[in-house]
Design a protein around this nucleic acid. Structure first.
Lengths: 216, 216
DNA sequence: TGTACATCAGTGAACGCGCGTTCACTGATGTAC
DNA sequence: TGTACATCAGTGAACGCGCGTTCACTGATGTAC
């Protein structure tokens, strides 16, 4: 039996092959989108037979779930690391954009069109709230600009519905700021990644910067 | 030969069956998303054989393209009609939201995850700019609020890249307003429709209203 | 108005394909004495 | 250190399925004289 903490060669090999499978899966998703992901195609690409992959993933669904988990994990780590390095919200915005542009289909795996009937496992919800935590921390009181609009309606609502921000004692203005950071930047990013600006002749980065400058 | 403008019974029947096929297609998309759309399944649902549908659509791709076109057309008509009834931007925002909530998968067919390699036909680009036209008209000078931020950087960029708004003599502030209307509301809507607020315990409608109130 | 012909909707069989997944099996790698 | 056994990776065949699409054909509907 393997000693806990010490990996046997077999375990190392398993972990490596799982990683290799996932890498091919990402390439396939980048090429044809998530619905086009096929275990058999991955196996062929790796020079092995289809059933072999079932030693590493119980089903296609498990693989996809794992990819979604990894995508969330990667985004959360990126945001967290940026926040830890002392960046402000604009810095987080730039990190988010770079992460999204790095692999659009990975972004869409998290924030794209949902597949009716599919429900993400609980742990990705946990990771999602990690991301919100980092945003909330960056949106802490001292960082609220003076020209923030005075809108008691939204803040009153947020003050009463702050379960998602329970870990933080952030004031309503910070809750609002974190949420708008998320929704506004996602709006630009998802339209940009989907190509909706491409025929318009303007640079979405300018819009993005504008939103970062006026994040209230 | 049919007299132009006057439909023969056969033509009426054809048009009706095409519409019926599309309706079943929408139901199927609502149930399983666009990638799950299948001509054979539609035929079975309608009580006919698979190949029969090829009398009405040359291929699966043509059907999907037609659905995308219809979705764009429906959105453009909704926005246009709302604008023509004298609504301001907030009114347009409410119309957009109602349209999106009415059929989330239809919304995602336009603004959701793009399928790598798929390119929409030219005419949908035309319809898309119709929508932008209506937004630009509603964002005309007189409607710009006094608390609009003074940001010469974005407006300078837009002043130089206004091909998408060529039909309008709108000032840069109006261009900005129309664009932010689009990106901000899409941000909230797409996250809402994808269920990203569902575990958070807050009402995305409140966020949406906030953005409409502070559309600068 | 009736007959001859052309048009067109829809069928059933078939093609080729790829999918996810199962199963019995081979051969290599690791473990226990 | 060598032998006996257990574990595990990977294969190839197979199952059942659904897909898009083509084709030759039947039968009904419309058109022309």
């Amino acid at each position: 039996m393997a000693i806990a903490g010490k990996e046997t060669p077999r375990e190392r090999y398993r972990a490596q092959l799982r990683a290799e499978i996932k890498q091919h899966a990402w390439e396939q998703i980048a090429a044809a989108g998530a619905p086009g992901l096929s275990l058999n195609a991955i196996a062929k690409q790796m020079g092995m037979s289809g059933p072999a992959l079932y030693r590493y993933f119980a089903s296609r669904d498990e693989l996809i779930t794992e990819l979604i988990r990894d995508a969330y994990r990667s985004l959360a780590d990126t945001i967290r690391a940026t926040a830890d390095s002392g960046a402000d919200m604009a810095g987080l915005g730039h990190a988010l954009r770079a992460w999204a542009l790095d692999d659009p289909q990975r972004y869409f795996l998290i924030y794209g069109t949902p597949v009716p009937g599919y429900h993400a496992p609980d742990d990705v919800t946990t990771i999602a709230s990690e991301i919100m935590d980092a945003l909330l921390h960056a949106a802490r009181p001292g960082a609220i600009p003076a020209d923030a609009p005075d809108d008691s309606r939204l803040e009153a609502h947020l003050a009463e519905h702050r379960g998602w921000a329970a870990a933080h004692a952030a004031p309503p203005a910070a809750l609002r700021r974190a949420l708008l950071f998320w929704t506004r930047l996602h709006g630009i990013l998802s339209l940009e990644l989907a190509g909706h600006f491409s025929g318009m002749g303007l640079d979405p980065a300018e819009l993005y910067e504008h939103e970062l400058r006026h994040l209230t």
